[in-house]
Amino acid sequence: MAPIKIALVGIGKIVRDQHLPAIAKNSDYQLIAAASRHGTVDGIDNFKSIEAMLDAVPAIEAVSLCMPPQYRYEAARVALDAGKHVFLEKPPGATLSEVADLEALAASKGLSLFASWHSRYAPAVEAAKSFLATTTIKDVQVIWKEDVRHWHPNQEWIWAAGGLGIFDPGINALSIVTHILPRPLFVTSAVLEFPENRDAPIAANITFTDGQKLPVAAEFDWRQTGKQSWDIVARTAAGEMVLSEGGAKLSIDGKLVHEEPEQEYPMLYRRFAEIVKAGKSDVDLAPLRHVADAFMLGKRKFVEAFHD
């Protein structure tokens, strides 16, 4: 088959670090255009808006939307209405209802919609899922703590309503947990810490369970300095499992059993090509649903102001 003619929308750090290299190395794609208010991509046509891009370059077959989630719905709807397949960066939208509407629209037009959860494609995630399927899980703890000043310097959108705050990284952990555990979870309680000058939380503690009363606890914090923590720990009948470094390494009872080079975004684009060719969509809303439930059930605790 001929390469999928793809365009990128929202040219920022994640596009330069991940999307551009992944597309360049995948023969299933030909990058032919980009749209962004501020950024550009060398060697292709660049536009200030998705509307201008789609009008000028009708050959585009798919778009990858990488702008903040508050703006993703309108762009996705424009692309779908124009007959283009759509790749959504995580989280797939600012609300569950938005994404459900996009999924229905894509289905009605015979187009593919992909809610991409990059952390599910971390090297040791499938090995962790396989291990947990073979044993009895006693409890699970998620520790996801990082330094927002390092990872999101001067990015005001993440602190605005709909930007998700700490759940911008925390949803990565939830995307893994909802993939590797054998049964669906639901939130039972949450405490969300909001800086007094921000509209999104800087930290959260959440408890979950499932239909068999499995205890699951998650600690998310954006104030961590020094070593960053992206770990999922499960006590099981077969020993303690630690999925560490955001899913890069798997250890059982302290012994490293799985480690590979990171290939998250190349695998995402492989999956997108697969669903486009198959004429189907891949839209799992479980991680975003848990975030919505945390906001719904969560107690708000106001903490000191945050300044970059």
Rank of each mutant, 00 (worst) to 15 (best):
I6G: 10
G10M: 02
G10D: 03
G12Q: 04
D17F: 13
D28Q: 10
D28W: 04
D28S: 14
D28I: 02
Y29A: 13
A34M: 02
A34Y: 05
I44P: 13
I44T: 11
E61C: 07
L65A: 11
P68I: 01
P68N: 03
A79Y: 06
V86K: 00
E89Y: 08
P92T: 00
T95E: 09
S97A: 11
A106E: 06
A106S: 14
A107F: 09
A107H: 14
L111I: 01
L113D: 00
S116V: 00
R120Q: 02
P123V: 01
P123W: 11
K129E: 11
I137T: 06
D139Y: 14
D139M: 07
D147M: 04
V148P: 15
V148N: 14
W151F: 13
P153G: 03
Q155C: 07
W157G: 00
A160D: 14
L164M: 11
F167V: 01
D168S: 14
L174R: 02
L174Y: 10
L174W: 11
T178G: 05
I180H: 09
P182L: 01
P182Y: 07
R183P: 15
T188Y: 00
T188R: 01
S189T: 02
V191I: 09
E196I: 14
R198P: 09
A200D: 05
A204Q: 03
N205W: 08
T209D: 06
G211K: 05
V216N: 08
A218G: 12
T225L: 13
K227R: 15
S229R: 10
D231K: 06
V233A: 08
A237P: 05
E240Y: 11
M241H: 06
A248Y: 12
S251W: 05
S251Y: 05
G254R: 01
L256P: 05
H258D: 14
E259Q: 10
F272S: 00
A273Q: 04
H290Q: 10
A292I: 08
R300Q: 13
K301L: 13
